[in-house]
């Protein structure tokens, strides 16, 4: 009776979405998403990305016509302009992913909110899955917004010939690839958070990962083909495959990049799955 009353009052009766809305994973995910949206850091990173997008767009508006005049190739916008955006979009989006991962586990543990969550009638795997889904959605939205702003700024300032179809398909592919990399970074930060109980240690370990894995990744190149144990090297191999084709390289057909990048993308997805399972396993053993 009370359930029926609750369903009527909330307007859920007969709704096809009822099962989804009542899903605890969805609740935790939506809470995580809104909490991340309200984080002051999100606004700061968004502002930084905006500034970078404007500066790079301004640079592209001068530099692309110079490249264009050399061989009159309209795809210079993609080859040159989009390739320019790779580093800063990767750097700041993966930085944000790391922060999101730390906030989800370590920070929640530090301020005690995870203890409250653990006392609720929820499976621990639901909590981890909810945080993972919420964080991933937030990162996907961030990546899409970042690329939209960056591409729009370049298009506005450039005003030259634009191969729209090619630009769209390659930008969408890049946004998917960057999202996958950001989700992997999120999982790694969650793993560090689950492993190190002390917030300071988790923060420092995550930051060291960012420094050695992304900023100073040159060290891993000595490992040859084993360098893909570093997630950034794996991501880079997918972006610009060892066959010499980058996602923004228009000298060959799009499908040639896709076919050579697919194994690396599959490996990225596999790593996400494994790291996520590890997070669940460690979190299940956590004392409330």
């Amino acid at each position: 009776m009370s359930d029926e009353h609750h369903q009527k009052s909330s307007g859920l009766q007969g709704s096809p979405y009822k099962a989804v809305i009542l899903d605890p994973v969805f609740h935790v995910a939506s809470n995580e998403f809104s909490m991340l949206m309200d984080q002051p850091l999100t606004f700061i990173v968004a502002l930084v990305i905006l500034v970078f997008a404007v500066v790079y767009a301004a640079y592209n508006s001068i530099a692309i016509p110079q490249v264009l005049s050399a061989d009159n190739d309209p795809s210079a916008l993609i080859n040159f302009g989009m390739e320019n955006m790779f580093w800063y979009t990767t750097l700041f989006c993966s930085f944000l992913s790391l922060c999101v991962g730390i906030i989800s586990i370590s920070d929640d543990r530090s301020n005690g909110s995870i203890r409250i969550l653990l006392t609720k009638p929820l499976y621990r795997r639901d909590i981890v899955a909810g945080k993972f889904v919420g964080g991933s959605l937030f990162l996907i939205v961030t990546v899409i917004a970042t690329l939209l702003v960056s591409v729009s700024a370049t298009l506005i300032t450039y005003r030259g010939p634009v191969p729209y179809a090619d630009l769209t398909i390659r930008t969408v592919s890049y946004s998917l690839l960057l999202s996958v990399y950001c989700i992997l970074t999120l999982c790694i930060a969650m793993l560090i958070g689950a492993f190190f109980k002390d917030l300071s240690l988790a923060l420092v370990a995550s930051f060291s990962y960012l420094y050695f894995g992304l900023v100073e990744n040159v060290y891993f190149s000595d490992l040859g083909s084993l360098s893909i144990i570093n997630p950034y090297s794996l991501y880079w191999s997918a972006f610009s495959t060892p066959l010499g084709k980058s996602v923004f390289d228009t000298s060959g057909p799009y499908t040639s990049w896709l076919s050579s990048a697919m194994p690396y993308i599959a490996l990225l997805l596999l790593e996400i799955f494994i790291v996520f399972l590890l997070v669940c396993a460690i979190f299940n053993k956590e004392e409330a």
Partner: peptide, 18 residues
Amino acid sequence: NGTLALFMCALSWLILRE
């Protein structure tokens, strides 16, 4: 907020490098 403080330090360091 200690977490935010480290994020701010890290972010500004990244910006300086750029």
